[in-house]
């Protein structure tokens, strides 16, 4: 067992973990943050996407020990004071989900995408989300949702 110390959604956690414990299972089973889904478990589908030090990451392909000292953000960390994050709101309003399984990963990947890119075309968003699969084939509305949120997050009125 190894001691790790990391910040998840602004809360500091100290924990003992087996070196082989994957970060996604640490979040889900030890911290009970079950918003992050495990889809393929082979770093393909992106359902387990979270932010590690602000960068999108597939938490099924990281060991918890690799996140020692890191700042982690999961889908649970986006809303503040009961207000949904602009991406959560946009996915809701633009119908960016059907079954919803891929949604936490889609949204976390999009947080990184919007933060690191200025005005994106639909094509840019599609390429930026190449690591996230939606099996309901809902990409059309996912792209629409990301565009809506990107517009809102960049407009001075919303800040």
């Amino acid at each position: 067992m190894r001691r790790i110390s990391l910040t998840v959604n602004g809360v500091k956690h100290d924990a003992m973990v087996e070196p082989r414990q994957l970060l996604v299972y640490f979040l889900r089973e030890q911290l009970a943050l079950t918003g992050t889904n495990v889809g393929c478990d082979t770093s393909t589908c992106g359902a387990c996407t979270i932010l590690v030090n602000g960068k999108s990451a597939k938490s099924c392909t990281l060991l918890a020990v690799q996140a020692d000292g890191a700042e982690v953000t999961t889908i649970e960390g986006l809303a503040s004071n009961g207000e949904m994050h602009p991406l959560q709101k946009a996915f809701h309003e633009s119908h960016g989900l059907q079954c919803g399984y891929c949604t936490p990963g889609m949204i976390m990947a999009s947080v990184d995408l919007i933060a690191n890119n200025d005005a994106m075309s639909d094509e840019d968003i599609r390429m930026g989300l190449e690591g996230n699969l939606c099996r309901c084939t809902g990409y059309q509305n996912i792209v629409k949702s990301v565009q809506q949120a990107a517009g809102e997050m960049r407009s001075p009125a919303s800040t």
Partner: peptide, 9 residues
């Protein structure tokens, strides 16, 4: 290579 998440690590 891979996707954005993979290229981050």
């Amino acid at each position: 290579i891979g996707d954005l998440q993979v290229r981050h690590f």
